[in-house]
């Protein structure tokens, strides 16, 4: 088969190209190339150190929070700060923790799951979910962008109707949950994506009791989603590609 190139690799943050050498259906060599450069590292040379978290945060707009947080830790270490006030540490953990609630399910559902699902299966859907019926109609009308077209489904694709319908339903639920997780983080950090309140030395903001109460309420909803939907799907779908040589029963 020779050289197989996938460029662009989609559903990632940034721009990626994968080159593989295939001999008799077996990959013998592979290269990954990041095809974009911004020069954010060299931009920071000679700048005020307090700008570093602001710029570094913008490395990624999907896993925001993490980069600004780590850059703040690096600036603090460079200035010889060994310990933060407990309140600042807790606030940062809540801000970044809410970001984790946003981007881990987002990576699983919105950036990965579509690779394993044969969405065309949904034309046989007979359930009542409004949004899945909408997708069904779009597939019939040949207007299902951006969910279709895609690479031809292969042995790795799940085409069991119940599993696909359930996974797509959760894909759509997670789309709403990620909005709420961003709001959770923004309550303490100004805005999301790209928070404002984590600065070298601590956190600028002390939230109101009202905001803490809202954060807590939203956390309950998120925890419920993680425990009852997300983890179950990770266990079920995370083992998907293995089915080629180790058949699994779905649904």
């Amino acid at each position: 088969m020779g050289t197989v190139i996938v460029d662009p690799v989609t559903r990632i943050e940034g721009h990626l190209k994968i080159t593989t050498e295939v001999v008799n259906g077996v990959v013998t060599d592979a290269h990954a190339s990041g095809t974009m450069a911004r020069g954010l590292e060299s931009l920071l040379i000679g700048r005020d150190t307090r700008d570093a978290p602001y710029v570094t945060e913008r490395v990624c707009g999907v896993c925001f929070g993490s980069h600004g947080w780590c850059s703040s830790l690096a600036v603090e270490a460079a200035h010889g700060t060994t310990e933060l006030p407990a309140l600042a540490r807790i606030m940062r953990n809540l801000i970044v923790g809410a970001c984790f609630l946003h981007d881990h399910p987002l990576h699983f559902y919105h950036l990965s799951a579509l690779d394993y699902l044969d969405l065309a299966t949904l034309v046989n859907y007979a359930g009542t979910d409004t949004y899945i019926n909408k997708i069904k109609q779009l597939i019939i009308d040949n207007d299902a962008a951006p969910l279709l077209p895609r690479y031809e489904p292969d042995g790795f694709s799940i085409n069991d109707l119940d599993t696909v319908a359930s996974a797509v339903g959760h894909y759509l639920d997670a789309l709403v949950m990620q909005v709420k997780a961003k709001r959770m983080s923004a309550l303490f950090s100004g805005k999301q994506p790209h928070q404002a309140s984590i600065v070298p030395g601590g956190v600028t903001y002390l939230p109101t009791a009202e905001q803490i109460a809202e954060f807590r309420t939203m956390l309950v909803e998120q925890t419920d989603f993680i425990n009852n939907v997300y983890i179950a799907d990770v266990v079920a779908l995370g083992t998907g590609p293995i089915c080629l040589w180790q058949p699994l029963t779905w649904g």
Partner: peptide, 18 residues
């Protein structure tokens, strides 16, 4: 994503690659 516009190309959400 489903109703309002037809997003033909969007590297972060589209199912297609390559």
């Amino acid at each position: 994503i489903l109703d309002v516009v037809s997003i033909r190309y969007h590297e972060t959400i589209m199912a297609a690659s390559g």
